[in-house]
């Protein structure tokens, strides 16, 4: 009996007060769309109610609810990424985002070449840097952001990411490569050489 009491319990009466803002921000940070984040947060509570019987008390309530939300976010990512057979063509068609001359020199386009950064090791530790970083991540195309978020925010293994969102590893590398080229460029413009 004592054992039972020490287990975590679900208490839906308190869910909104305790977790609504947390889950909303968790989703917003990963999806960058408030309406969508609100929908998924709401769905999370409804799904959680329906699957209360599966809760065994090993994880605490917050962790359990977050895991449900996380699955919903991954479902959303997969719906955006998985059915795409030619991911590389659809990432962005903006020729402004071409970095390399693939016809003659095979080198970087001159205006796209990385420039020297002033004292980057030091300025990267400035707390405002993370705000610029978050802004630059917001500018990433949705599909790139999905993969990048799973890697760097959720710290997942590459294999897991590919399986979860339904992409091949070569697609993963194409997307990660492009994400990093864009992020580096954005940070250079908005932070390191501002």
């Amino acid at each position: 009996m004592l054992k039972l009491e020490s287990k975590n319990m679900l208490n839906p009466k308190n869910w909104i007060t305790l977790y609504a803002d947390y889950l909303l921000n968790f989703a917003y940070f990963r999806l960058r769309d408030r309406a969508l984040a609100e929908d998924l947060m709401q769905d999370t509570f409804i799904s959680a109610l329906k699957s209360q019987h599966t809760y065994n008390g090993t994880a605490n309530e917050k962790t359990w609810l977050t895991a449900i939300l996380k699955n919903k976010i991954i479902d959303y990512y997969r719906s955006k990424l998985g059915k795409q057979s030619k991911i590389t063509d659809s990432i962005d068609n903006n020729t402004n985002n071409d970095y390399f001359n693939e016809e003659t020199s095979f080198h970087w386009f001159e205006k796209k070449q990385p420039q020297d950064w002033n004292n980057p090791e030091k300025t990267i530790e400035n707390s405002e840097f993370n705000t610029t970083l978050a802004d630059c991540m917001k500018k990433m195309p949705e599909k790139l952001a999905a993969v990048f978020t799973l890697k760097y925010i959720d710290d997942e293994a590459t294999e897991t990411i590919c399986k979860e969102v339904g992409i091949t590893s070569s697609n993963y590398w194409v997307m990660m490569h492009r994400a990093k080229l864009q992020l580096r460029e954005c940070l250079e413009k908005n932070w390191f050489r501002k």
Binding site: K13, W15, D21, F29, F45, I46, L49, I153, D155
Partner: peptide, 25 residues
């Protein structure tokens, strides 16, 4: 990690929260 990012960007207002809690109840 994600805790270091701006994690309190959005907040629901009390009316929204009350409506959601009612739905759950």
């Amino acid at each position: 990690n994600n805790e270091n990012y701006d994690s309190k960007v959005l907040q629901l207002d009390e009316t929204q929260k009350a409506a959601l809690q009612l739905q759950i109840d």
